[in-house]
Amino acid sequence: MVPTLEVQNLRVHFMLDEGVVRAVDGVTFSVRDGKTLGIVGESGSGKSVIGQSILRIVPPPGRIVEGKILLRMENEDGTKGRLDLAQLDPNSRQARSIRGRDVAMIFQEPMNSFSPLHTVGNQIIEALRLHSDVSKNEARNRAIEMLGKVGIPRPEHRIEAYPHQLSGGMRQRAMIAMALVCNPRVLIADEPTTALDVTIQAQIVELLKQLQEEFGMAILFISHNLGVVAEISHDVLVVYFGRVMEQAPVDVLFREPLHPYTRALLKSVPGIDTPVRSKLATIDGTIPEPSELIPGCPFFGRCDQCGGDSVCQDTPYVLTKVAENHSVACPLVCVAG
């Protein structure tokens, strides 16, 4: 079956004064209906820019310089096809109609995505009526139904609430309701739980899973929290410096990570087997400057496996398949494997 969304060799560059920042530098992945792809990586690794390029809302001076973003479309005449979002003019009507209707996004801080001047209900109704031809009343009913589905108690009252009148968790729920009201096929969730408490985070993760079962959309779940990604995703993409370091099904990735970077990340969080007060594993050095041009492994120099092996520095970056659904971009692993 054709994946709902397929991204091929995506490159997004920011032309800045200090040089070209290769925020996304050759990323490939795909998601299917009803599946969740988790994208993990440290701050500045390019996770948000991946999400932004799919919606075509990369802020200037950012530009998609290469790659395809193929969205499966069902045309009106029933034929199926794939639309390359990367070729679309971001301001065109088609792009705007895809945004929200086919692909929706939820953000870390829902306060910024709601206008403080309008009620939550009105904004959901507005979003719905923008993309589908429904009467005002019908839209209102749909909005109430949706708010109920995301677990907002007494939705028929809350629909009149202004964003600031809701708690952080409730706002995030309302945001999810707004994103899902047009029944999109792809939902991009950019750190939707980062600003929330663990108990609320657990609620939202549970909610997303439940809604996915009901609506069957594909989810791109972006987070820097390995735990959250482990809980919600079917497949996981580990990004570093704008590149995919490892991609695998969730249980494989967390049980037998192959890339030294993934391993180091997992080890740096204290777990149940970490003796109390023991030294945690750290990753030496810092992430390279965003404008640096690194043809080989971007993790070279911080990696504890290669020990300065020049193979790592010289081998051009390539993501290699090591097993069904499992790809790694580490020359050492790939050669040995």
Binding site: M170, A202, A230
Partner: peptide, 21 residues
């Protein structure tokens, strides 16, 4: 139980609290 865990086998043991603090 709500602390996110990187062990997939742990999923399902969560106590989801209702409501907000």
């Amino acid at each position: 139980s709500n602390v996110p865990s990187t062990r997939p086998e742990m999923v399902g043991h969560k106590i989801i609290l209702e409501g907000d603090p």
